[in-house]
Amino acid sequence: MANVDKEMLTQFLLRMGDNTLILGHRVSEWCGHAPVLEEDIALANTALDLIGQTQLWLGYAAEVMDDGKTADDIAFLRDAWDFRNLLLLELPNGDFGQTLMRQFLFDAYQSILLPRLMKSSDQTIAEIAEKACKEAAYHVERSAETVVGLGDGTEESHKRMQAALERLWPYVGEMFASDEVDAAMAAAGVAPDPASLREEYDALIGKVLSEATLSIPDSDFAHKGGRNGKTHTEHLGHLLTQMQWLQRAYPGATW
């Protein structure tokens, strides 16, 4: 374990794990509803990868917290205010285009963050990142291709993708809004300051969105409050009622 305040490290790990958990759950809502079979399978597989990564991040969070809780306890027995995911990821799916736009905006972030985390001073974080990195690489390949296909597609698909980008853009800034947890992680060499990733991120999404003939909104306004848990959207509580239903109705149930 890196030489860093345990509480801060826990917060960082919850951010990583809650991001993949909440997005994994959202994406899994598509199972059986996608427009074509191949996309249905692709969405389910992506959700599966994200949930798998969640087990690694929250498993390590539980190890650091060292209070007898497991990754499952963290996922299923916390309430909305304890979650540390980006607001972007808890938003309802919208249509298929909006789901893929959100996936691309997040995959692009992960594809830049995870390679940095492979050099973390915390060995376990470096190992989880090494594993997740390979999956993030093909996730972003697929979501970018789909965003281009739909953006530069028919008049209808283009219109929907532009609307999706405008809907989701105000939630992008939160990825780069550094706070004291990020400062502690950066100082200890655990993780980069997210603000330092913005330039590379803008270059990557700029290239893909331009190929998709989509215009990035001219606004820096950013909704915040997810990664520090201060103000989640009303959507997270609704999501949790589904995701946590079984453990709430039958506490301690095991597979």
Binding site: E38, A42, L48, E141, R142
Partner: peptide, 13 residues
């Protein structure tokens, strides 16, 4: 290629 994902996470169609 039809899809980057197949019947299991490790396969494409």
């Amino acid at each position: 290629k039809m899809s980057q994902f197949g019947s299991t996470p490790c396969k494409a169609q």
